[in-house]
Amino acid sequence: MKRLISLALALNLYGAFPSWYYKVKGTKQQKKAFVEIMLPLIQAENKKIEHLRKTVIDIFNDPYYLINPKKVAFLAKVAKIYKIKNITDKEEFLKKINTIPPSLALAQAAIESGWGKSRFVREANNIFGHWTYSNKGLAPKSKYEHIKIDYSIRIFPSLEASLSAYMKNLNRNPAYKEFRELRDKFTKEHKKFTGIDAADTMINYSQKKEEYVKLLKHMIKANNWQKYDN
Rank of each mutant, 00 (worst) to 15 (best):
T194L: 02
Y166C: 02
K168D: 04
K209W: 05
H146V: 01
E36S: 13
K148H: 10
Q43T: 15
P101T: 11
E112M: 10
K85I: 03
N171R: 09
I42K: 10
L170E: 02
K80L: 10
K208I: 00
R3T: 15
V78P: 08
Q108D: 08
F34Q: 01
G137S: 12
A161V: 07
K96Q: 13
F120C: 07
M202S: 08
L66D: 02
Y151T: 10
K141I: 12
M202G: 09
R180P: 02
Y212Q: 11
F186T: 01
T187V: 13
E123K: 15
K2D: 08
L13K: 12
I220W: 04
N46P: 08
I49N: 11
M202V: 11
A222T: 06
I149W: 03
R183F: 07
E50G: 12
K217S: 07
S118C: 09
K227T: 05
V213I: 15
K54D: 14
V121E: 05
S6Q: 13
L75A: 02
K70L: 05
K168N: 13
E123A: 14
M167Y: 10
L182A: 13
N169C: 06
E181R: 07
P40H: 05
K209V: 08
V56R: 04
K25Q: 12
A10M: 02
P69Q: 01
I81D: 04
M202L: 15
A175H: 08
I220R: 04
M167K: 12
N230E: 13
L11W: 05
T201S: 14
K32N: 08
L4E: 15
Y228A: 00
H190Q: 14
W131A: 02
H190G: 07
Q207K: 14
S162E: 03
G116W: 05
N223R: 04
N86T: 10
K71Q: 13
R53S: 14
A222W: 01
Y166E: 02
A16F: 08
A105R: 02
F156P: 03
Q108K: 08
A175T: 02
I57E: 14
S6E: 15
P174G: 03
K221M: 10
K95F: 06
G137D: 07
K192Q: 13
Y144L: 01
G114L: 11
L66Q: 10
L170M: 07
N86F: 03
H130Y: 14
I147N: 01
K117W: 11
L41D: 03
V35C: 09
P174K: 06
L4D: 14
D184S: 11
T27Y: 09
E178F: 10
I155C: 09
T27I: 07
T187R: 15
K90L: 11
H130C: 06
N86Y: 08
F74A: 04
Q29F: 03
